[in-house]
Nucleic acid binder design. Sequence first.
RNA 1: GGGGGGUUUCCCGAGCGGUCAAAGGGGUCAGACUGUAAAUCUGAUGGCUCAGCCUUCGCAGGUUCGAAUCCUGCACCCCCCA
Length: 424
Amino acid sequence: MTAHILDELQWRGLVEQVAGPDLREHLASPRVVYAGFDPTADSLHVGSFIPLMTLRRFQMAGHRPIALIGGATGMIGDPSGKSEERVLLSEEVLRQNVAGIERQLQRFLDFSGDSGAILVNNYDWMKEFSFLQFLRDIGKHAPLGMMLAKESVKARLESESGLSYTEFSYMLLQGYDFVHLARTHQCTVQLGGTDQWGNITVGIDLARRLDGIQLYGLTGPLLTRADGVKMGKTERGAVWLDPEKTSPYAFYQYWINVADEDVGRCLRYLTELDQEAIAQLDASRAEAPHLRESQKKLAEELTRVVHGESGLAAARHATEIFFGAEIEDLDDQALADIFADVPSSQLPKARLEEGLPLIDALVEAGLCQSKGEARRTIQQGGAYVNNVRRTDLETTLRSSDLASESMLVLRKGKKKYALLRFHS
RNA sequence: GGGGGGUUUCCCGAGCGGUCAAAGGGGUCAGACUGUAAAUCUGAUGGCUCAGCCUUCGCAGGUUCGAAUCCUGCACCCCCCA
């Protein structure tokens, strides 16, 4: 990685706006850069992916990354007014969220060596501040006119919901984070999505006024689809980086299903493939879109980064099963892993021994809402047992139909699966 | 306050005494095709012990051999005149 980090970011389309006199020159020597992550949940999701990967790119280019967890800013980020009790409770949740995100961040950055990453939590320095002290030391140097002029503020002031004093203060807290990191870690560059522009410039301005130093900012794109919708959401909720919340298989599948018009940007924004490799994928996509090499490569790269080699292998294996032929000769553990995301139902083993009508099984598994629907599904060829189509209405499941020791896989249509587990 | 119109199965919307579980469209589900895409095509779409039975057409009664369809009362919605 001898190329200048800005060139690298540029061709990837990761540079939206830059703040500061000459960022290019500034980044010619090793610097300390930071990006913040709010602990709104106990795991990061795809929405944080771009800044996370950008930090990695900086690190690979020889700069030191700081991942900041917003333990303090996360406390006021939520606009809805909450009672005293719930604030206390949410502090507990917050602690867990911070812990969870800390754990994840550690997997993405290298903490060793000269440019080893640093993990900080702004709660650690914000907790020392009294309200009065903050107003005297920091607030005094933040001109209201400038803050009111921010796009982010103007939009909210004109909206129905308005803007509370607390939320208005958010940008000042984040601004101070930047100042603090500059003082304590010689951090000079802040990264963020376009929505962070206002917050970043507040920090730059504050540093100039307080310490007379020049800081820099760089905003990147948000991960959206061609039609403007934010990516990283499915019918089942956000796509998380935590394997407990989004299995490696589900994660892999999410990227496999990215639309052609979005996959190019995803490759540039999120993978570490070089320019040449991506150009090849672009060409392949133009000539033979049905091969979907771009999607496969994207899913592979990202699953490997997030879930490791073993996670990728599991996702691939599960994919084979999901789209492959008959399911047989597997053990309970393997089935449970592969179908981790699939709803499962428990039934007494006796039901199977006495013969369980397929119609009933489909209803019990929750795949059909009524027996009438189950009947129709079977007649129309939409019912599968262990991936084998069964069209006989009279089909009765027996012990011999088990795919493993105690489980059996039902499927309705192309990809709606349900697991039936039989206990004694 | 006076006059008129409406309330139908997930949604929109036909139906105006039996042939109505109720046209048509949308949605949804399944099948074919396909790139685990889009589009398209086909079928299905109240429940059940399914060639039969049961429960649905704002709510409660009534008339009829028989009502979503007629009558009475109630509730909600819309329009016109004050």
